[in-house]
Write a protein that binds this DNA or RNA. Structure first.
Lengths: 159, 159
DNA sequence: TATTGTTATACTCTATAACTATA
DNA sequence: TATAGTTATAGAGTATAACAATA
């Protein structure tokens, strides 16, 4: 993918992309990545990654949820979540708390510091996402969202 | 992300996704990933990954291109390409050929076997991508593509 | 000096399988 | 037996920095 990089590699960009060019999935990916990387860069200043941001949001909105549930909500294996939470706990953004009623469970809570970081991160992410909408009219935006929803429904994507 | 999985984790899906839910970038990602993973699974049967597929397409369409150029076309660092080509060369799908005119360059060519694999892979990828379009009318599809292009233009994404 | 490709290294993201402690 | 979380391990994908050969 190339972003604002006409400068140096004019030749390289002209390599024939064959079938790749026409794939709708690829257009979605390229568009998404362009914004994702901007956001990623800016979140680095807060010391978190986009993945960690997503996790913080979920935990913030679902206080005390257990790991398995969070993993499912994020579409991840439970084992994948362990090191993610480890790091956020080490950085004091999240904490694990044992549950008296079921001692297998370790409920996840956001910390005061986590809330602070989140408060700063949300506008960064929102502003990044707004870039996607910036060049569309009100009507076009609504139509794009409608069509995207229709595509996802057709795929059976619940998310 | 959840795909066709209402069965088991109804509760998990209902976790509050907060700001995440409304992000257009996230909708792009989720939609793209749903199709990507289907394609990925099917390509596994041919012994290649989606990334390798992309590389094969580029090499097939640009015979004898040198690595640096291909790396740029794929948006990758040149060092990233080395192990990718290593593997495809080991599997006899690509080959490096020295260039008489500039002995620093190793031009990349697709092999007969690579062409064969590609011939089988293209319909898999195309069929996967068609899923995205399946539930849109002719007019809706055109409009979606137009709007996506507009979004990308607004971002300065050349690709 | 600059470029091509390589190596060494490291980090993220992700999964599977086997384990433990509890239920 | 089944579930929650953990560990051990592995593999893709990616990058940066330093390097040798060549231009």
């Amino acid at each position: 993918m190339r972003v604002n990089d006409e400068t140096e590699s004019a030749v390289a960009q002209r390599l024939d992309q064959g079938i790749l060019h026409g794939l709708l999935g690829r257009q979605l990916r390229v568009t998404y990545l362009a914004v994702f990387r901007t956001i990623e860069e800016q979140l680095t200043g807060l010391g978190i990654t986009p993945q960690q941001f997503g996790l913080l949001v979920i935990v913030d909105r679902n206080p005390g949820a257990r790991q398995t549930l969070i993993a499912k909500a994020r579409g991840l294996d439970k084992s994948t979540l362990v090191p993610m939470i480890d790091r956020l706990e080490r950085d004091n953004l999240l904490e694990r708390r044992p549950l008296a009623t079921d001692r297998r469970i370790r409920a996840i809570w956001i910390t005061e510091r986590g809330r602070e970081v989140l408060r700063k991160a949300v506008p960064i992410v929102q502003k990044g996402d707004d870039l996607l909408r910036a060049h569309l009219s009100e009507g076009e935006l609504a139509e794009l969202i409608r069509l995207m929803e229709k595509v996802r429904e057709g795929l059976g994507v619940t998310d």
